[in-house]
Design a protein around this nucleic acid. Structure first.
Length: 423
RNA sequence: GGAGGGAUGCCUGAGUGGCCGAAAGGAACAGUUUGCUAAACUGUCGUACUGGCAACGGUACCGAGGGUUCGAAUCCCUCUUCCUCCGCCA
């Protein structure tokens, strides 16, 4: 979330940047400034009232020790009289704080200056495109037919035991999943990330820390009895590792990676675009997360983007990189690159990775700070990226690599799968 | 799941109603001394909100939230969490 002090001091800039997102309630900004003003006024009054009460209490203590009972009782009575006013102000303060909080969590992050205004995916900037569309044999099939043909992913079986969107991977299909996970984790480790294994269920505080709560609980599965959420991405547990932490400057950058299954409710929307592996309720993903010095975060964003691209290149996929426009970016992001691979059989781009810089939006919620060179604590910047999400990578590999002899596994992956063809 | 005991600053740990934002030791940082290292000595050494150009103040925080009181780290209630023992168990 944004810092109130920043909003207060940069009203124009905040409004201008929010407009880039096509943010619908700019009036919230002035409301926040107004409530904040009120809050500070109440706090000042309350503070001085408390100061007086504290002084009296201290004096009573001294009188008691001196054995001056009457004077103490007198002062007690006097001090009691102020309690009502104190209570009133203190209620007012919590009230204002709550109001302020409820407003400020409604503000999304401010897009970076390079982020273009826009509200639809069509307005995203294409930063680069790499490779050429795969040439497919005649009669090429979309992946949902290939998975049935080779009996490697069973959507119906998943429907039976759970429901739509929970596929069962079989034989070489399962092995391909495991190969990709290992491939991604090994590369992340080589790139300097520390491999972590984290819980797949998180508490409310964690959901709040990375921005899924309070607004987007509909996106997550909720285990009601224990009030825990199934993670929609490893970003949540891995970033929350640093909740309420003050790091030393020399500990930065922190680079972690984790494989986890991801669970997304994503209610609504059925049809061709969500067929097969295109959109699932449970899928596998390797995530990379960094906590960095604010001066370095955009350089790191580029590095992370380059890293994700290196994976796509090794897998021989035709891809492009988009810089999302303001309106298409996630709520918490200041800048996001999406990586999309071309699915030759579906004739469309599939999003396989999203790399974002959150600047201090998450760290403010997380209270993730570091002590800088001058000894002051300041918020660190957080970033993350998918490296990579499996299902659409699998879809692209299956579709783009189909031959008359079966599906040819990308060379870089063969030492992980142990086979060269799915047939 | 049952019984009991804890939770204090970076760490250890004292503190059972006022003189406690908190002893002491350690660590860390800066300095003095020193041929180097070590030791010794001196100083600094939590976070946040808020007032002020600043110097320097005010307030809150001793796991979290409520309560009692003129006054709470200290008493009461609820919750979280850790440890020990028992039970169950991959």
């Amino acid at each position: 979330m944004l810092q109130v002090s920043y909003i207060r001091e940069n009203r124009e800039k905040v409004l201008e940047r929010l407009s880039v997102r096509n943010f619908k309630q700019p009036e919230l900004v002035d409301e926040i400034i107004r409530i904040d003003e009120e809050r500070r006024q109440v706090q000042t009054s309350l503070d001085s009232l408390s100061a007086i009460a504290n002084a009296s209490a201290k004096q009573i203590g001294e009188l008691m020790r001196a054995g001056n009972k009457e004077a103490a009782e007198l002062l007690k009575a006097e001090t009691s009289a102020g309690k009502e006013q104190h209570k009133k102000l203190s209620d007012q303060l919590s009230d204002a704080e709550l109001k302020l909080y409820n407003l400020i969590v409604q503000l999304p992050n401010l897009p970076h200056d390079l982020v273009k205004a826009g509200s639809t995916p069509e307005e995203n900037e294409i930063v680069l495109e790499h490779g050429n569309p795969a040439e497919l044999p005649t009669g090429a099939l979309p992946h949902w037919e290939l998975t049935a043909k080779y009996d490697i992913i069973d959507f119906e079986l998943g429907t039976k035991i759970t429901g739509a969107g929970f596929p069962v991977y079989k034989g070489k299909g399962a092995r391909l999943q495991r190969a990709l996970i290992n491939f991604f984790l090994d590369h992340a480790t080589d790139a300097g990330y520390r491999e972590m294994q984290v819980p797949h269920l998180v508490n409310e505080a964690s959901g709040f820390g990375t921005g899924q709560l309070p607004d987007k609980e509909g996106q997550m599965y909720h285990a009601g009895i224990d009030n825990l959420y199934l993670i929609p991405t490893a970003e949540v547990p891995v970033t929350n590792l640093y909740r309420d932490v003050i790091l030393k400057e020399e500990e930065l950058p922190i680079k972690n990676t984790a494989y986890t299954p991801c669970f997304r409710r994503e209610a609504g929307s059925y049809g061709a675009h969500v067929r097969g592996l295109n959109r699932l309720h449970q899928f596998d993903k390797v995530e990379v997360v960094q906590v960095v010095h604010p001066d370095k975060s955009y350089q790191v964003l580029e590095e992370m983007s380059a890293y994700v691209q290196s994976l796509l290149k090794e897998l021989g996929l035709h891809y492009r990189v988009l810089r999302l426009c303001g309106g298409d970016m996630g709520f918490t992001s200041a800048m996001t690159y999406d990586m999309e691979v071309w699915s030759a059989a579906q004739q469309r781009w599939l999003e396989v990775s999203s790399v974002s810089n959150f600047e201090t939006y998450q760290s403010n919620r997380l209270k993730l700070r570091f002590k800088n060179a001058t000894g002051k604590t300041q918020f660190a910047h957080t970033l993350n990226g998918s490296a990579l999400a499996l299902p659409r990578i699998v879809a692209a590999i299956l579709e783009n690599n189909q031959t008359e002899n079966g599906i040819k596994i990308p060379e870089a992956l063969v030492r992980y799968t142990g086979f060269e063809y799915i047939d």
